[in-house]
Design a protein around this nucleic acid. Structure first.
Lengths: 123, 123
DNA sequence: ACATAATTTTAGTTATAACTAAAATAACTC
DNA sequence: GAGTTATTTTAGTTATAACTAAAATTATGT
């Protein structure tokens, strides 16, 4: 099995690597994954999960209201071992945060309409 | 040496992989590289070469009017072996062309000003 | 049937990668 | 120093990845 460009493109994104790390050894629900990534919206996580499923790198199982995702580790070939090795680095989280910050696209999160704090009256 | 995100991002681009293949085992001049890639302008090649040099994955030597580029193979770690393996695949060129087509950005090449064909008079 | 919870989908935004064309630079030749 | 060759740089274009907010969907409990 030769190195697949789809695998390369998928793991080149720090956000997708973050998700892959979470679903690498155990399955996790979408909400669970989102709670581990407080710097993005649920929608953004859902879209990346869809991309990973479409790339056939992650699979999804539905049970009641939840959807559980997990990595298809065998689909990564040698890259899988490299990722695992990467995650043993004590600094990987720090490096990941830095990369996420520096490569961020799209609008920055604004306060959601329904969660706006009520104005505090200054008497 | 752990897997470097810079290496990942660099080799995730099919255009840069194409260049890396050309400068992997021997050094080549910029013009030489461009002649092997007739679907892009010289400028585009030059910019990708600069990106690879800045990522410290390629080095450049100047001699008279030419600049010779070559890959710093040791900087790729395990990914280097994976690329080499990829290039042994009989279909890699075909797959690369397909990927280049499908991921193309920017304006399509237009006929250059100076190379415009003169109008043929229809008497 | 209705409310709630989990998740996806849609429509719109932003930043940027990857290109183009053309101008600029640098080194050589005459 | 004018012309030629090799290459880089600049300014502008285009397509798209990665996001947001909000609406829609789906399943479950009451």
């Amino acid at each position: 099995m030769v190195l697949d460009p789809v695998v390369l493109a998928s793991v080149a994104s720090p956000r997708r690597r973050e998700i892959l790390r979470l679903v690498w050894t155990a399955e996790r629900s979408a909400g669970d994954i989102h709670r581990a990534m407080p710097d993005v919206t649920f929608g953004a996580v859902s879209l990346q999960l869809r991309a990973l499923v479409e790339a056939e790198l992650v699979e999804c199982r539905q049970q009641s209201r939840h959807r559980y995702y997990r990595a298809r580790r065998d689909a990564f070939g040698e890259v899988g071992r490299m990722l695992e090795q990467m995650w043993t680095d004590a600094l990987w989280q720090l490096k990941l945060r830095a990369e996420l910050e520096s490569t961020r696209r799209g609008p920055r999160p604004r306060r959601r309409h329904g969660l706006r704090r009520p104005k505090v009256r200054t008497p």
